[in-house]
Simulated scan of single mutants.
Amino acid sequence: MSELSQEQLTQIKEVLNQRYQTVIEEVREELANAGQHQYIEIIGNVPADSGDASMGDMLADLNAAMIDRQILEIRDIEAARLRIKNNEFGACQDCGEGIAFERLMAYPTAKRCISCQQQYEKTYATENIPSL
């Protein structure tokens, strides 16, 4: 566990709570507007051609991808809250060293210190990228 003061933990909890509420609201808005996109005007109820249908499909997929990203962020926030509860918050999951308070304020769900995160990104940068 990193050496975060109680005041620092309180600040991080506040940032996590604010971000959680923001993301929940974004998901609610996305779901509420799922059937009311601007592209409905383009394609109407029956697409005029395959290009219009493709555009409608792409925008629907984009909406789903945005919701997926937001759900992943909610899970990260919940995991960070659990690490706080279990006194495991602020420690790098790779090297065990403390994660800097400044990093945690900027990215409160961080699981790694800067150097381990850089190494992780170099190692896994091409993972899940399709190739021919």
Score class of each variant (00 low, 15 high):
Thr10Glu: 05
Met55Asn: 05
Gly44Ala: 07
Asp52Thr: 05
Glu14Val: 08
Pro47Ser: 00
Leu9Gly: 00
Pro47Phe: 02
Thr10Gly: 07
Arg19Gly: 00
Leu9Tyr: 02
Ala48Thr: 09
Gln36Trp: 06
Tyr20Thr: 02
Gln8Val: 01
Gln70Thr: 11
Ala65Thr: 12
Ala32Arg: 10
Gln38Phe: 15
Gln11Thr: 12
Leu9Met: 03
Ala34Tyr: 08
Gln18Val: 11
Val27Ser: 02
Gly35Gln: 05
Glu30Asn: 12
Arg28Lys: 05
Glu14Pro: 07
Glu25Met: 04
Leu72Phe: 15
Thr22Asn: 00
His37Glu: 08
Met55Val: 04
Glu26Pro: 00
Tyr39Gly: 03
Gly44Pro: 05
Arg69Ala: 15
Asp52Arg: 06
Ile40Gly: 13
Glu7Ser: 13
Glu25Thr: 09
Leu62His: 09
Ile40Trp: 13
Gln11Cys: 05
Arg28Pro: 02
Glu29Asp: 11
Met58Arg: 10
Glu41Phe: 12
Ala34His: 04
Gln11Asn: 11
Arg69Ile: 08
Glu25Val: 01
Asp49Gly: 03
Ile40Ala: 13
Ile43Glu: 01
Ala64Ile: 07
Leu31Cys: 12
Glu26Gly: 03
Leu31Asp: 15
Glu7Tyr: 12
Lys13Gly: 06
Gly44Arg: 04
Val23Asp: 01
Val27His: 00
Met55Gln: 09
